[in-house]
Nucleic acid binder design. Sequence first.
DNA 1: GACCTGCTGCGGGGTG
Length: 822
Amino acid sequence: MERMKKQALINLGTEWFAEKGWKPFEFQLETWDAYLEGFSGILNAPTGSGKTYALLIPILLDYIRCNPKYAEEKAEGMNAIWITPIRALAREISLASERAIEAMGLAWQVGIRSGDTSTSVRKKQLTNPPQLLITTPESLHLLLASKGYRNFFGNLGTIVIDEWHELMGSKRAVLAELALSRLKSLLPALQIWGISATIGNMDQAMSVLLGSGESTMPNKIIKADIQKKIEVVTVLPDEIEKFPWSGHLGIHLLSKVVPIIQQSGSTLIFTNTRAMCEIWYQRLLDVAPDLAGLLAMHHGSISREIRDWVEQSLHSEKIKAVVCTSSLDLGVDFRPVESIIQIGSPKGVARFIQRAGRSGHQPNAVSRIYFVPTHSLELIESCALRQAIDDGQVEERIPYVRSFDVLAQYLVTLAVSDGFDAVETLEEVRSTFSFASISEAEWQWLLNFIVTGGKALHQYNEYQKVRRDPDGLFRVHDRKISLRHRLSIGTIVGETSMIIQYQRGKRIGTVEEWFIAQLRPGDTFWFAGKSLELIRVQGMTAEVKKSKKKKGKVPSWLGGRIPLSSQLAQYLRLKVAQSREDAYAEPELEKLIPLTELQDRRSHVPLIDEFLIEYFQSSEGYHLLFYPFEGRYIHEGMSALIAWRIAQIKPISFTIAMNDYGFELLSDAPIPIEEALENELFNTIDLSADIQASVNSIELAKRRFRDIASIAGLVFKGYPGREKKDKYLQSSSQLFFEVFTDYEPDNLLLRQAFEEVFVFQLDETRLRTALDRIQFQKIILSQPEKATPYSFPIIVDRTREKLSTERLADRIRKMKLALERE
DNA sequence: GACCTGCTGCGGGGTG
């Protein structure tokens, strides 16, 4: 048979769509075309838009083109890999692709390779690979850790990476980049496609995915022009006077949330924390007992079985509403729900849009999201969100670069399987976005690290993992090391947690060690919506039974804090100004008028070109408040910096408190703020040096180092079922930190810890931008009689969280040095 | 290194 024309192939795909009563969208046809022309690229499409078929179909069509006798013969080898960031998506993609394969009459098999795949299936896959393999970045690395993997990937033509926006900002993307660099080098014609929701740095997303290097294919970004209308409905309190100035639970509006759930066919209620999720679930059932059996709960610490049940029940409409955390952001592409409720700030525009998009899936349907503020100032946030959506402003994802921990792990992965050649591998590694700048010296350090353990650890055998063989290849020869390495592949370092299970063995979920440690047998606590009595603790398992008691602690987990994004922050400042200038334009701002007026009367409401500082005295001491509206993380760095700079003028020690809107410096002595302002308090000239001096970066880096040590393979987390305790992981990673600091200060992993602190935690770039902005604003130094509506939440927060500045002795010593310099 | 509000995600005992 002659080579089929591209158009004929596309017609074939279109026919298949027609059989199902579908019509391809413009972007799908565009993708088919680009794929068949040999392009790599990124497909920018929202969930539920048919993005999967946009790439599955052309992969199959291309196979037909290259293998004219497709229908008669069994396809040979693996043709395509589909990577998903979560296992639950693999099942869906597998079903979708099986449908398409069958309809086109291809002799293709679809296989899933993830942590759920049984050993026997894995073995079969290695000798007889499926034509389409659906897997995760981690499992792909496990394949690269298998002997003879070159044959396995021999026929590979395409890799698709789904939800690339989700991976982009994490070290899992670095795993993907490295695996791709290896496969691209094995298969120069490999086509690579990413699927991504809209992010602010789409071009960069493509650079990260495709990397550089000679074999880079012609590439393209295809945008699915599916504009969804999003309607933001704020649930307004009746009387703003009775609405709290601070708080995070939002339970005051419970009675207004119930009717929304009752009147909708199905509802998702997004909360910001797992504890909040538990509390809302209970309270909803308290006030609306008719929801019993129709309301469920879903968060990351609830067991996989229960979560699967919840997802399926929602899909089959057995239940009506689910209270959840971001555990339902991704994954199960279930039937769209009718209403979405967001409780408290979503902290970012993209997250809010993604959640809203869970409703109103029909073309032209409006996605409606109800926003439930948890305190007064969040009313401004809902206006900010609405405006940001209208302006199409979404966040960027910052890719990790120079993550040497991941690279060290990857090199051992290659050494575990067939070994690697240093020259060839360096070239591949350099073709990735993450390691484009790696120097020869850094590369040699890494090789030395995996071979000898490096300068600090060369006396210990267990860190001498890899050997350079006479043929020049680097290999692992010790079976124990290989095994331990396979068990440690990946970049997610979680808390070790305790399993909660009934006496008969059914698992309900997990909580953190410290929470159970504070309970005694017989105590009750709430979990997964149930009142449970602790019976006994055995190893890492806590046995419980159901309890009738109504009172009990609700567990909290030490999750990461979600920082307010700079996009949202920018709109927040805009809307703060509007609350003073044009409050009647928006119902939320109008509602807020009494509060805005009070703030303006007592102090000031800043316009967009103004920067507000409040200074007042109370029985607690002297309060100095700043309102950059930049989010907690930035405030953390900025407050330490400002405190340090003021202390250069007059030796004072501060207690620092902050939230997403501003921060407070509290002192028992008067603060020379005017003088500080005259001395250019916000300048960015010596910023890096001043940050170094003001922030306790060693402590921050030490915490970062825990993950780095684990990813780089310095700390072994234990065999499955026999995990080591957190205390062990913490103390051994700290030990490494100290050993390196003392004996090998130029250790690359140690340096990486500090770099991560400055890039991701203190976010120096954003801090600089914020300070530059403030320098151009008009400083309003207001001296209210007492606390203002803006300052109140921060002051309340302080009673919870106390961060004192560095020890006074250190401070004085440093200042003396500074004085001597001049 | 905690708990005072604080998310999510992966992997797993094999030499063709």
